[in-house]
């Protein structure tokens, strides 16, 4: 291939690749060590926060990744796992506590809770990951273009994204799903639309930051074509940060789907989802609190893991929210 700058492999950049430009810039700077300012943080703020950066991702991150892997595997393999039919009633006595035959117990209709929770996770995960993937693809491309070319495109894009943000998210999702009719597809669509606004602004922000970096300016001056600069120099650097914030966005999407499920406008019963299980269990909470607690706990841990992993990665790639 006739490629003028073949050093940097295209496509998804690994962490070392993303950090490379800033590392060279620091290394090439003045060798003199200015110790005083950094040492003299106020006594009131004893530690300049070294925290995450440069220290690896930490135990919590891997714990989160572990949990997410387990949940995703269970959801994917649900059909071939030895589970009861999640919608079959009276596979056990109603309202059983955890036990050998039904690990998590049964609900008020005698359905197996373990099976329902696992099949329910499919709804959350499908909606969460699909909607953010769609939002990232659309919002990301728009944001990339707006941040790179600036000018009129940028003004229009930012304006539209801000108007999309002017609607309270849940209310907009509720409105869309209501008017289109509740279904898994429409819920995913509604949350994708919601995701486009913030993701556009996010990618636009970090694109602007990277477009002004020396290596991008240099590539432009060397006569690289616009799309090549965007693809090789900017995308490779924007992507890690966008992906880590994407994880947090997935958490938000899962929470949003849960809300719609809870209000009964997402997948219809008897199909289980975490949100509608919480809503159903609420009615019999006094007698059978576990029916609500299991899906709540799973959702809590999954959202926590996504938030935590995303937050760690964000700190690791040093995405500043100020770029927004």
């Amino acid at each position: 291939m006739h490629d003028p700058a073949p050093e940097r492999p295209a496509g998804i950049a690994g962490p070392s690749d993303a950090l490379a430009p800033s590392a060279t810039m620091v290394g090439g700077g003045s060798p003199s060590v200015e110790l005083e300012p950094e040492l003299l943080g106020s006594e009131l703020a004893p530690d300049a926060e070294f925290e995450t950066a440069r220290r690896g991702l930490g135990f919590g991150f891997w714990l989160s990744v572990g949990w997410l892997t387990v949940i995703v595997l269970l959801a994917v393999l649900a059909d071939i796992l030895p589970l009861e039919d999640p919608n079959a009633t009276f596979v056990g006595a109603p309202g059983l506590g955890p036990g050998l035959h039904h690990l998590l117990g049964t609900d008020e209709l005698g359905r197996d809770l373990l099976s329902r929770v696992i099949f329910g996770s499919r709804v959350s995960l499908i909606v969460g990951f699909t909607s953010i993937a769609v939002g990232m693809l659309i919002g990301g491309s728009i944001g990339l273009a707006a941040g790179y070319f600036r000018g009129k495109i940028d003004a229009i894009v930012t304006g539209l994204a801000n108007i999309l943000l002017a609607f309270p998210a849940l209310v907009l999702a509720l409105a869309i799903v209501t008017f289109m009719g509740p279904s898994l597809f429409h819920v995913t669509l509604a949350i994708s639309i919601l995701a486009i606004g913030p993701l556009t602004l996010l990618v636009r922000g970090s694109t602007i930051v990277f477009s002004q970096r020396e290596f991008v300016v240099a590539a432009r001056l060397l006569g690289a074509k616009s799309w090549r600069v965007v693809y090789r120099e900017i995308l490779a650097n924007v992507l890690p940060g966008a992906m880590s914030l994407g994880l947090i966005a997935v958490a938000v999407a899962i929470v949003a789907e849960g809300a719609l499920s809870f209000l009964g406008v997402s997948v219809r019963t008897p199909t289980a989802s975490w949100g509608n299980m919480i809503a159903e269990g609420r009615i019999v909470m006094v007698q059978h609190p576990l029916i609500t607690l299991w899906p709540a706990a799973l959702m809590f841990l999954t959202v926590l893991a996504l938030n935590f992993a995303g937050d760690r990665l964000r700190a690791y790639f040093d995405v500043r929210e100020g770029a927004l």
Partner: peptide, 29 residues
């Protein structure tokens, strides 16, 4: 902020993370 990494700070951070993962329908119930 005054005492970062103190037990109170860690508790506050942990609490914040937990609350961010607990949507209102879960908390409400």
């Amino acid at each position: 902020a005054y005492r970062p990494n103190s037990w109170a700070d860690r508790a506050a951070t942990g609490f914040s993370f937990a609350m961010l993962a607990a949507p209102p329908y879960m908390l409400g119930v």
